[in-house]
Amino acid sequence: MSGSGNTDTRKATYLVKVGHAEMLKGGVIMDVTNAEQAVIAEKAGAVSVMALERVPSDIRKEGGIARMADPEIIYAIMEAVSIPVMAKCRIGHFAEAQILEGMGVDFVDESEVLTPADESNHVYKHDFKVPFVCGCRNLGEALRRIGEGAALIRTKGEAGTGNIVEAVRHMRRVQSEIKMLSQMDKHELMAAAKEMGAPFHLVEEIAGTGKLPVPNFAAGGVATPADASLMMQLGAESVFVGSGVFKSESPELMAKAITDAVLYFDQPDKLAEISKGLGKAMPGLDVATMPENERLATRGW
C-alpha cells in the first residue's frame, strides 16, 4: 500500500529506520500481553506497545524457554491500537524476525529477555525492512549492535526485577565511555575500538560527534515515575516499561503516571504530584544477591 502513483520510493533506508526511532523520543513504550492491555497503554499516552507472551517478571518466575509471542496475540494488538507495535525475537533468531517483519510489526526488539537462539551471533539487521532495537550494557555492545544495523539502542538493565540499579549502571557506563572517546587523541581510537570490541568507523564517528548515531533509550527495571525521571536525567531519550505497569496494583494509574513523568522528568514539584496515590508498584527483586545464571543482561555477545 505505497499508493504513491508513479513516484519512485526508497524504502527501508537508514533515515527511515532511525527516523522512526526519533519519533518515539520523549515517550514511554509499554510491554503488553493482550489487546486489552494495549488499549490501556494507548489511552495512558504510550508512544508504542511491545507485544509479548509473558512480561519479564513472569518469564523469571515460570522459567522455561521464552520465545516470540503467538502471531495471533500480536495481530490482535495491532488491530486494537493505532500507535506503533513492537515485538520481541530471540537473540540470533532471524526466522522469528522475518515472521514479525512479514506481519508488519513496526519495530523488532532482539531481546535478551527471551531465551537466546544463537550463543555467538546476533541477527544481521541491515537486511530487514523493519527497524530493530537492541539492548546493551556498555558502549562496545551498543556499537556492535549498531554495526549489525540496529536503529535504536536501549540499556538492558535487569528486566522483570523492578530494580533500576542495572539500568543506571548501563546508562552511566555508555555515557562515560562516549565522553572518554570524545576526549581521546585520534591515535588512541583503534586501541579503544579493540578494547571495546566495537567497529572502528563507529568509534571514530562518536569521538567526533560525542553521541550515539541512533537514539538511546532506557529499559530494564523501571517501576515508578521517579525511576523514569532518573533515567531521563541520566540521558535516556525515552523509557521502556516492562513489568512495571501491568504488575503494579493499578496499571491504568501507573501507566499514566510514568508517561507524565517522562514529559516532566526534570520538574520535582510536578513529579511529586504525578507520583501520588498510585497504589503499590510491582514487587521488586534484589539484583546483588541474584545468581549469575538468573541474570538476563548477561545474554548477548
Binding site: 505505497s2 524504502k11 527511515v16 527516523g19 506503533p84 523493519v130
Partner: peptide, 10 residues
C-alpha cells in the same frame, strides 16, 4: 501510507 515497513523516502 501504511505501517513502518511501508515507510519511505521519495
Amino acid at each position: 501510507f501504511g505501517r513502518q515497513v511501508d515507510s519511505f523516502e521519495a
